[in-house]
Design a binder for these strands. Sequence first.
DNA 1: AAGTGGTCTAGACCACCGC
DNA 2: CGGTGGTCTAGACCACTTG
Lengths: 240, 240
Amino acid sequence: MADYVYRTVMLDIKRRILAGEYEGMRLPDERSLAEQYQVSRSSMKRALELLAQQGIVFKKRGSGTFINPLYLKNQAMFRYEGSNLGLTDSFLAPGKKQGIKLLEFKVVKASPETAQDLFLSENDFVYQFKRLRLLDGQPFLIEEGFVPIKILPELKEEILQGSLFNYLEDAQNKAVTRSYLTITVSPSSAEDQEALQLKATEPVGVMDGIFFLDDGTPFEVSSMRVHYKYMRFNSFVNLN
Amino acid sequence: MADYVYRTVMLDIKRRILAGEYEGMRLPDERSLAEQYQVSRSSMKRALELLAQQGIVFKKRGSGTFINPLYLKNQAMFRYEGSNLGLTDSFLAPGKKQGIKLLEFKVVKASPETAQDLFLSENDFVYQFKRLRLLDGQPFLIEEGFVPIKILPELKEEILQGSLFNYLEDAQNKAVTRSYLTITVSPSSAEDQEALQLKATEPVGVMDGIFFLDDGTPFEVSSMRVHYKYMRFNSFVNLN
DNA sequence: AAGTGGTCTAGACCACCGC
DNA sequence: CGGTGGTCTAGACCACTTG
């Protein structure tokens, strides 16, 4: 990553918090910290702002900046930095082997709804694909996705065997920086039960999402049906 | 709300965007806008930053600030300002009448897990309550909550007939500003089926959350089981 | 090379909290 | 009243994109 002043300071303060270097759950005031780190107060504010957004610290006008006790108690809960738009966090158990099985791959005319979501015209073509995703050989997610052909004219089956996001970043130097997800719950369909090895009473979580490139172009709409045991989504809201 | 410079400017630009006053999906550059509004460039940056966080606009270093076409196309999707920590957005259909039925209300010693979540000691007491929430008379959510008695020594049944958050804000002048939610999916239990009028094959969405006061005190842990047809959670991630 | 957003600074003044 | 975080400014310089 980059090495901006505010980021460096933020990371160092975070490290100190973890190391328990601040007494009484309270940080020194912004002016002293700025002095200590030899940065402007603005930069210090920005660093502290980041910590607040991560839920590590909270600020009270008039009284000071305090460490969130829960952050020390249960750090796993707060691991948010570097989340891949909510997806990685929800699925990727560390150390598990991911697999992808391509079930379907074709080019079709965009449906009116898809066209609207992807900001296409009536007669534009899109890739349509269906993928089964595995964790240690166990199927846990069915994904149906649509991508405009004009965004990835050279999309091939091999590419869909791996992560589309990674392909975009590595091969195309385009980053997916925004997503809009809607999460709902549904009884499992016959197809779900077959593909995800579910009983009739066992449900799926449904994540419908639109993903955007950093220039704002909608890049993919996809609907993911997730085995209920693997479905977990964390949301941290901070209205500081 | 307040009338800060950056907020005023933000709202005015938002209004202009809606009114279609900017040609070609592109805003003037920051320096010109600052001049136009007679504010500093920093304040203008801050206003634009807010718009970016709301997904209304996105910025590209080197090229400019652009209106998100999807914002104009489908504004409902982007209504995020003023969200009540993700909850209101997910449940409150506008125009529907909310009801609350108190099923259970007692004081118990905090379990080890609850004590940890609420940052209590072993032998602290908590209120434990269970509420059934209705939309137009239709039950859609079972909520089981725990609140430390020392935070709300005067909690009464009547208060639990209404919104706890509103009570805190109105009567206690305390705001709930942060929440941590985990969303999962589960087959319905016998109790769910009874209370929410579900068939055996129909599931529930589960939202486990911790809510914090603005001074960082954990105020409530609660587990909500939501009728699958009413379960909807929106997540907008922006890694600008 | 010109234009755009990003970072960083130094400093003034305001708003809120607690003693 | 002193101390704290919040707002706002004016300006220098950097990094990236585009013609």
